[in-house]
């Protein structure tokens, strides 16, 4: 080992020690100080009741299956719709100008409206027009509301991906004799979609939490189940249980998105 390497190793060890000590100090301070707050006993009883946590957790987990199901059937529709809108906004053909207008209005409208309002409007409004069962189900129309909102976001993400592909790629494809359609299909989209995977992972994490908004129009998913327990037991612990379940899914998903983003950055640099 050279003297320089030894020095650097020493420096690294020192940095690690300091980082460890300061983290430990913060944790110790929190653990020691928070329980000394005068209202700690009341807060602990309201939010961290172990007995209630254990009693309600299985039901919360069961309710979470519904969140996962809604998520699973929404995602393919969101991406199909998002891609269609992104392509509509990117057309160059003058005859298809109305399609571009439609794409722009769609994005402006559904990205601008709060998801909650859209869930109410579509979830209660459209069935209110007189649809018979089972076509007035809140599951169907709640899903439609989520797809409308999220496809508008995804469309913009995809469009930015498409526009980030250098013009030379398109020109090269034309020189090779590819049609405009084939250029998009075989040259632009494969590169564009790969480039926006990290951004779309973030959309999925956000969607995972917004699925809970469907509970506003009836379905008993995890947050609603936690709310029911809260009002019966007059205790907020079930929400903590729900948060734990959400974290079990969103933390790995976010880490995976970070990993993809780093990989993408390394590949480009």
């Amino acid at each position: 080992m050279t003297r320089r390497a030894a020095y650097e190793a020493r420096q690294r060890r020192r940095a690690n020690l300091i980082a460890g000590a300061s983290t430990l100090a913060v944790v110790v301070l929190i653990v020691l100080l928070v329980p000394r707050a005068p209202g700690w006993d009341a807060v602990r009883a309201s939010f961290f009741d172990a007995e209630i946590f254990v009693r309600t957790f299985p039901d919360l987990l069961r309710a979470f299956v519904l969140d996962v199901a809604i998520f699973a059937w929404s995602v393919p529709m969101i991406f199909a719709m998002g891609l269609a809108i992104a392509l509509a906004r990117g057309t160059h053909n003058p005859a298809l100008f109305p399609l571009r207008i439609f794409g722009a209005v769609y994005v402006d409208l559904f990205r601008g409206i709060p998801v909650v309002l859209l869930v109410y409007l579509v979830g209660f409004g459209i069935p209110g027009l007189g649809l018979p069962r089972p076509w007035n189900s809140p599951y169907i129309w709640g899903t439609v509301a989520l797809v409308l909102t999220y496809s508008a976001y995804v469309a913009e993400v995809l469009r930015s991906g498409i526009e980030s592909i250098h013009t030379s790629q398109r020109n090269a494809a034309i020189c090779l004799g590819l049609s405009e359609r084939d250029t998009m299909r075989y040259v632009i989209l494969p590169q564009a979609i790969r480039r926006v995977v990290p951004a779309n992972m973030n959309m999925l994490v956000a969607l995972q939490k917004d699925v809970a908004l469907l509970s506003f129009i009836g379905p008993v998913e995890i947050l609603r189940q936690a709310g029911i327990f809260k009002s019966l037991l007059a205790n907020f612990t079930p929400y903590v249980g729900a948060a734990v379940i959400f974290l079990m899914v969103t933390v790995p998903a976010t880490r995976y998105a970070d990993y993809l983003m780093n990989k993408d950055r390394n590949a480009r640099s």
């Binding site: 109410y120 209660f124 409004g125 069935p127 209110g128 007189g130 649809l131 018979p132 069962r133 007035n136 189900s137 809140p138 509970s215 506003f216 129009i217 009836g218 379905p219 008993v220 609603r224 029911i228």
Partner: peptide
């Protein structure tokens, strides 16, 4: 069938008008 659950009276009424319950 399992019941649907809402935030307040107004939402229950809206769901009833929509024929969902």
């Amino acid at each position: 069938q399992s019941p649907l659950v809402y935030d307040d009276n107004a939402n229950v009424i809206a769901a009833m008008q929509a024929g969902q319950i």
